[in-house]
Design a protein around this nucleic acid. Sequence first.
DNA 1: ACCTGAACACCGTTCAAGT
DNA 2: ACCTGAACACCGTTCAAGT
Lengths: 193, 193
Amino acid sequence: MATPPRARRSDAQRNRDRLLEVARTVFEEQGAQASLRDIARRAEVGLGTLYRHFPTRDALLDSLLGRHFDALAAQAADLAAAHPPREALTTWLRAFAAQAAAYQDLSAALMDTINDETSPLHASCSAMRGAGARLLRDAQDAGDVRPDVDGLELFALVNAVAWITGHSPAVAARRDHLLDLVLDGLAAPSSRR
Amino acid sequence: MATPPRARRSDAQRNRDRLLEVARTVFEEQGAQASLRDIARRAEVGLGTLYRHFPTRDALLDSLLGRHFDALAAQAADLAAAHPPREALTTWLRAFAAQAAAYQDLSAALMDTINDETSPLHASCSAMRGAGARLLRDAQDAGDVRPDVDGLELFALVNAVAWITGHSPAVAARRDHLLDLVLDGLAAPSSRR
DNA sequence: ACCTGAACACCGTTCAAGT
DNA sequence: ACCTGAACACCGTTCAAGT
């Protein structure tokens, strides 16, 4: 799960909230490499205040992403309980890709988080990945997905599709079709339609 | 094909060559967002000279990429002549992915080129894409690849895999396996092993 | 024709000074 | 405790001045 909120002076908390709100907007508008100065300006906060709360760009991104990760992990559990394995996996991957596509360049940040075990986000990121891996294993146990795929590869593939989606409108229009192609590649030979 | 070399004053030509050589090295070292100032410095050339020859970062990238595109297009023709359709396509896609993975962030530049018809690279980029699309069509005509995939989707998928490869060493180690998964997704049901 | 580097407007990051 | 903004070292881009 994401880090729970610490006790803070109330004015500091207000600044923090303001920064997160503005950052979400700006990142969605301009992508993950948007100017931090600009974010501070639009939040009407000193630049140093931004740095005090979020010592690095990733820290800021991470605070925004933690909730998404937690939400996706929770959704995975729900899906596993409510649907047959392959359907649960498929639905979850679509949700994941939609999420990743919403933030431009999020996929890059995501992959970097995976590789950086010291990231504050690492815990909730790997919790989410674990949830996905469990869905994958269920589908494999049910004979729906070929056994020679692991969670990392699954995650990488879907992330890759989400990324490319953000780099071409023409491709974006066919995101679901691309995911279908990938999912068909993952299907166990016996379960193909 | 890439733009043929123009007539130039010999000192200008020398600077141009030098810049391209240094740029290739630096881009491979640091990725496509490396500092242009740094490139000019290492080429021992005024910053203005770099801008004179390559008015934008993309122009510089493009000059480096044009040759690769031409080479890939030529290779596609060779493969089509020498191998059965599915094998030709597979081999070509592997070569493409290896090429794209060599430059970090190349995939992003590539997708942007596709979308920008005014890019000087657009011609050789689409020539290469056309060559790939032809291999795809051959494989489809032979019944080896499902008919509901087009060149753009193929290109996007392989590009996506190449990109993710550059963002995680663990994933990079399994590039061929990921490509296999994607290629299996493209296989026509009847031709599955 | 071509080259150069100073100039401009930005950026990320740090940190002394304030409340 | 926390906030602020000037200061520093960079960057991309332009352009007057030189050869």
